[in-house]
Design a protein around this nucleic acid. Structure first.
Length: 487
RNA sequence: GGUCCUGUGGCCGAGUGGUUAGGCUCAGCUCUGCAAAAGCUGCUACUCCAGUUCGAACCUGGACGGGACCUCCA
């Protein structure tokens, strides 16, 4: 297994990845709260971890990838007040909470499938693990690090912080956090300002509630991840991921709970993906600059000049490192669309290359550079730069400007398969459909007629055919070997 | 206000103390009946100020700009 380096938020530096029990790897990623259409920023996070998952698998690890669905317990504010997001939506639309959950879970799966993201190994839900969450809350009470007041169970942050580093993940000072936390309503029951709820007493009208030792209620937000990661990956596992916005509160509390529960750091490597911005500003509904994945695909949005295919968007996302902010703009998307097109065209060209007796290029070195890029904290932008070197080599070989042996052509095919399709998860835009096959024949008939016209030097006619094809979205490409075309 | 991150060529976006990132755009050339495609060549950047150094865009300090978190959020 070759050395893989990744940036660990816990230590704030790149570290060599060492699995707890190789070849097995346990990876937990915080999934979506299914109360609304999946947000493009969510997609970026899950696509980033899809690449990480795919690369680990490619390297030969046996990965158990757990990504939860939050379908309860997620309050509108983190002050442990306010309403459950899903309950609220359910009341608003006069639906069962589970209808909301079902609708948006299906939507989420559809979108992820369009982006060609692999499903996780296990996708557990918060509502499916109520007992496990209660058990953890009870155990933390038993350890003296949580307390119950009026049916709600709070985690005692300041008591925990006496023996543990509560702020390890952010590097903040506890005193500063205490000073900066403002007074919020409905928190009278809390002992400490930073305390957070493990279990929340439900009001009678609350739609989703369960029996517990503390009366009817529902779980706090953070505890589901502790419960489900422990259940499926054990008390200690390898990688925990999520968006950077989860780092300060959600993950900090998750670590505290897990340590309080079983006395161990739950996870060795914490990976965080950066935010998505639109023209320099964070994409958010309140700023009015957000669009849905479906709007991005269709182009049906005031901020978008046109639609972009899911694969274009995926490729675009990979041209930025996962720890940098990713800025959406029409110009940037169009640039990616062209680049992605060129990459995919070269894959077709690669299949038709004629081998030479010798090679003028070092393809093995190119493969090594691909691995070096990915081993350096999954650096997909550098990987793509290397792959464009391959594009140039393939096109030049096709133009007979340089030579490749059969072995090198095979190696290039392997590199393409491994890095473009297996690791980056890109795929050619569908070309195998029945109508596509028919179109292929039809266009070739038209091009044959054009070539006849050309042979007769009837250029007005041949140009008219070409221009009309171009108008219809078929690009004609003449070369010495003949005429090719693409959409 | 506090904490942290960041500032790269027309646009997007990597990276390193001294050597070409890459993509897109633009210009020229090759090829072509013309065009497109493809290839080649060119456009050589690193917010500002001071310091460390033989040498800094890359290290340190400061200024200014942008962003994230501190409040639901991937």
């Amino acid at each position: 297994m070759q050395p893989l380096f990744l940036y660990n938020t816990l230590t704030r530096k790149k570290e060599e990845f060492k699995a707890i029990s190789p070849p097995f790897v346990g990876m937990y990623v915080c999934g979506p709260t299914v109360y609304a259409d999946v947000h493009l920023g969510n997609c970026r996070t899950f696509i980033s971890f899809d690449i990480i998952y795919r690369y680990l698998v490619h390297l030969g690890y046996k990965v158990r990838y757990v990504r939860n669905i939050t379908d309860a317990g997620h309050l509108e504010s983190d002050a442990d007040t306010g309403e459950d997001k899903i309950s609220k939506k359910a009341k608003l639309q006069q639906l069962e909470p589970m209808e909301i959950v079902q609708t948006y879970t299906v939507d989420f799966h559809n979108v992820m499938a369009q982006f060609n993201a692999l499903p996780p190994s296990i996708e557990p839900t918060a509502t499916g693990h109520i007992l496990e969450q209660q058990e953890i809350a009870q155990e933390i009470i038993n350890k003296g690090l949580a307390y119950e007041v009026n049916g709600t169970v709070y985690f005692d942050v300041e008591k925990f912080a006496k023996d543990h580093n509560y702020t390890a993940l952010t590097g903040r000072k506890l005193e500063e956090l205490l000073e900066n936390t403002r007074d919020l309503e409905g928190q009278q029951d809390k002992k400490g300002r930073l305390d957070f709820a493990l279990w929340i007493k439900a009001k009678p009208e609350h739609l989703m509630q369960w029996n517990s030792a503390w009366g009817k209620g529902f779980p706090g937000w953070h505890i589901e991840c502790s419960a489900m990661s422990t259940k499926y990956l054990g008390e200690q596992f390898d990688i925990h991921g999520g968006g950077m916005d989860l780092q300060a509160t959600h993950h900090t509390n998750e670590i505290a709970q897990s340590i309080a529960y079983c006395g161990k750091q739950p996870c060795n490597y914490w990976l965080h993906t950066n935010m998505l911005t639109v023209s320099g500003q964070k994409m958010s509904k309140s700023l009015g600059n957000s669009f849905l994945p479906s709007e991005l695909f269709s182009g049906n949005h005031p901020l978008l000049d046109k639609g972009y295919s899911p694969m274009t968007v995926r490729f675009f996302m990979m041209q930025t490192h996962y720890r940098s902010t990713l800025d959406f703009s029409n110009e940037a998307l169009q640039a990616s669309e062209k680049g992605f097109d060129r990459l995919m065209e070269s894959h077709k060209t690669l299949q038709t290359l004629i081998p030479s007796a010798t090679s003028s290029e070092d393809i093995k070195a190119l493969e090594t550079r691909c691995y070096e890029a990915m081993n350096d904290d999954f650096n997909t932008p550098v990987l793509i730069a290397v792959l464009f070197d391959a594009v140039r080599i393939i096109n030049s070989a096709n133009d007979k400007k340089l030579s490749l042996t059969q072995a090198d052509i095979e190696l290039l095919k392997k590199i393409y398969q491994h890095f473009i399709f297996d690791v980056m998860g890109l795929k050619a835009v569908s070309e195998n459909s029945k109508s596509m096959q028919v179109l292929d024949k039809v266009v070739n008939i038209v091009l044959d007629l054009r070539n006849k016209a050309k042979a007769e030097k009837n250029f007005p006619l041949s140009d008219e055919i070409r221009d009309k094809l171009t108008e219809s979205g078929v690009q004609v490409k003449d070369s010495k070997e003949g005429t090719a075309w693409k959409i």
